[in-house]
């Protein structure tokens, strides 16, 4: 991009760079997820570690197999496959058979990313594609939530983890319901303190609201992701559920319950912020988050499922190209009419 014998340096935009590469960004996110992974292992023991390993193995295997066919080869080095596997595993129940976690990672990466043309081309969050596949293929397993162990039973691995491939898991003796399930089917709320500290049943990474919040704030300050997206999601959920709660507080859950339960925080911080599948414009980020928030509340309160974060994010992923188009900022010096 330089011409003129070094006297006049001509360069195309952008002029300001932050020097962030894809591998570095992926590493930052994985490190930012570290405390959540540790919390998952604290609450669910070795099972959590095994499920995470299986998810990562599936994603990396699919990335490697499909990457061979691409002209640029497999992109294992950028760490995006590892991140996809980890995010997927953290949305799974602790008692899930390992072969299902592996399959979910592989399908998510193959279908959600490689089939679309690789990193940067995918329309939907690959981890959520994998989870949606598992949910559609094995609905009974994804609605079985085994209870938490304690630190003494760290090395006790859930028997259902070791179901043979293609076989269904043994019934878990200590299966229980998630806070959202309790709310939906038995109209029973859970203590805010339990939700914050993670002392509930649920997916591996979603139970401890406090850890996710702290990690999210740190990552937002380090500008790993666009803070507007999670802020907009949480704000929308808070506003909409407060209105609904004020209308009839006996039928609908309180806004703090809505915010701290289920996968909302985890989804808002680690999934909705995926730079590939979310809008790049600031206004677009607000619209995207508001859409996710509204759909989450709609599914949770009036839908058939207790939790709707996954479908909310996937639906808004589909709307992202459109949001990007309508939210383009006005070029400097142009009138509003021209846009």
């Amino acid at each position: 991009m330089t011409t003129g014998q070094g006297r006049l340096l001509l360069q195309a935009a952008p002029f300001l760079r932050r020097g962030i590469t894809t591998p570095r960004l992926m590493t930052e996110v994985i490190i930012g997820m570290g405390p959540v992974m540790l919390a998952a292992m604290y609450f669910f023991g070795l099972s959590a570690l095994l499920v995470m390993l299986a998810g990562v193995a599936g994603a990396v295997a699919a990335e490697w197999a499909f990457g061979k066919a691409r002209p640029r080869g497999a992109s294992l080095r950028d760490g995006s496959a590892i991140l996809t596997g980890l995010v997927l595993a953290l949305t799974l129940p602790p008692g899930i058979p390992l072969w299902m976690a592996f399959l979910g990672g592989a399908v998510g990466l193959a279908l959600g990313k490689s089939a679309m043309g690789g990193l940067g081309q995918n329309m939907f969050n690959p981890a959520l594609v994998g989870r949606a596949f598992i949910q559609a293929a094995f609905p009974s397993v994804l609605t079985t939530w085994s209870a938490q162990g304690n630190i003494n039973s760290f090395f006790t691995i859930r028997a259902s983890n070791f179901a043979l491939p293609f076989m269904h898991p043994a019934a878990d003796a200590v299966a229980t319901a998630t806070p959202l399930g309790l709310m939906k089917f038995e109209r029973q709320s859970t203590d805010l303190l339990h939700l914050l500290l993670g002392n509930t049943a649920g997916s591996l990474g979603e139970t401890c609201a406090l850890v996710i919040l702290i990690c999210g704030v740190i990552m937002a300050i380090r500008r790993v992701f666009d803070w507007r997206i999670p802020a907009s999601i949480l704000l929308t959920v808070a506003v909409v559920s407060t209105i609904v709660w004020l209308v009839d507080s006996s039928r609908y859950p309180a806004p703090w319950f809505m915010l701290c339960s289920g996968g909302l925080l985890f989804g808002a911080v680690y999934m909705a912020t995926d730079p590939v599948t979310s809008p790049i414009t600031p206004r677009g980020a607000w619209i995207f988050g508001a859409g996710v928030g509204v759909i989450v509340v709609l599914i949770r309160l009036w839908g058939g499922l207790p939790e709707g974060v996954m479908y909310a994010i996937l639906l808004m992923n589909a709307a992202t190209p459109l949001i990007d188009r309508v939210s383009q900022p006005r070029p400097f010096g142009r009138g509003r009419v021209a846009a």
Binding site: A136, A137, F138, A163, F166, M167, H168
Partner: peptide, 11 residues
């Protein structure tokens, strides 16, 4: 696969 097979409902 016998009675313990976990069907892939989606298929």
């Amino acid at each position: 696969f016998g009675p313990n097979f976990e069907p892939w409902v989606i298929m």
